[in-house]
């Protein structure tokens, strides 16, 4: 054992032994051992777009071959045509703008509220005692169920709509961020103590960066939540906006227009998630996870 020398491989072990130069004699490898790779492997470029593209291709194929009844689901090109028509006739543009504005404002308010509440609850025991239970209750209340109450309180104007959207946004952000903040690794707390960090430095350099992955998970859910809440408030009580437009067109049986609206929601959701992911990838470049 102590005097294992690197010996030349026994003659006849052949080219298959290319990998093993330090093998003890007699155990010449006949083939390289294969290790099953458990990570998902290399990144596929534009992988996120691949699924939707395939879906649209299948949809087009089904429509073109006549397998898909246009009364059930119109063909992609007729949806695009309807979209262009709606845009040119001046109906789509203003509704789209107002929807974007609502979603944006609601999202901004929800983001600030979610982050602020999570910071207070995640960083202080008193804060957690006061806030956490209430948010958990709030989370259990269905947004649709709260709409009548909010209309009573706030009227049916923009304030009400933005409040509902902000609620849909702040909850997932709060849940994920506060969980990440309070799950900070005890070993890093010890390290910070031995390095003599102040409380502020500890928060800035250890707690907040450590909680960022959780924050981004919450952020992505929050972005999606803002679209979902948007369509709800616009279809239930609105006189403008994309949801209103869809609802109105549906009552005239204009299914193409409804699909246009849905497609726009889909594209928004996909695009905003993509943006958040791009930011996440830049900010969390230190991470080497399965996502690569």
């Amino acid at each position: 054992m102590a005097d294992t020398l690197i010996r030349p491989l026994p003659a006849g072990s052949g080219p298959a032994a290319e990998a093993g130069s330090a093998q003890p004699a007699g155990a010449a490898p006949s083939a390289r051992r294969r290790v099953r790779r458990l990570g998902p492997g290399r990144r596929i470029p534009f992988a996120r777009a691949l699924g939707p593209v395939l879906l649209i291709a299948a949809w087009s194929l089904a429509s073109a071959t006549g397998r898909l009844d246009p009364r059930i689901l119109p063909a992609p090109w007729s949806v695009v045509n309807t979209g262009i028509q709606l845009w040119n006739s001046g109906t789509l543009g203003p509704d789209l703008a107002i929807s974007l504005q609502r979603a944006g404002e609601g999202f901004a308010i929800g983001l600030v509220a979610g982050v602020a509440l999570a910071l207070v609850a995640g960083l202080s025991r008193i804060g957690a005692a006061l806030i956490d239970g209430n948010v958990q209750i709030n989370r259990a209340l269905p947004i649709l169920g709260m709409i009548p109450l909010f209309i009573l309180w706030l009227g049916i104007g923009e304030t009400f709509k933005i409040t509902i959207i902000a609620m849909a946004v702040y909850i997932p952000i709060y849940i994920n961020l506060s969980a990440a903040l309070s799950a900070i690794d005890q070993r890093y707390v010890e390290l910070a103590e031995t390095l003599g960090l102040s409380r502020g430095e500890f928060l800035r350099h250890v707690v907040v960066p450590g909680a960022l992955p959780g924050f981004f998970t919450g952020l992505r859910l929050g972005v999606t939540g803002s679209w979902l809440a948007l369509v709800v408030v616009e279809e239930v009580n609105a006189t403008s906006g994309l949801g209103y437009l869809m609802y109105q067109q549906a009552t005239y049986g204009l299914i193409d227009s409804v699909v246009v609206g849905l497609a726009i929601y889909g594209i928004w959701g996909f695009a905003s998630d993509l943006i958040v992911r791009l930011i996440e990838r830049r900010v969390l470049s230190w991470r080497r996870t399965l996502a690569g």
Binding site: R187, Y188, L191, T194, H205, P209, G210, L212, W286, R287
Partner: peptide
């Protein structure tokens, strides 16, 4: 203090 693990902050 030097710990058994290097305890470098990954970020």
């Amino acid at each position: 203090v030097v710990f058994q693990d290097s305890r470098l902050l990954p970020w």
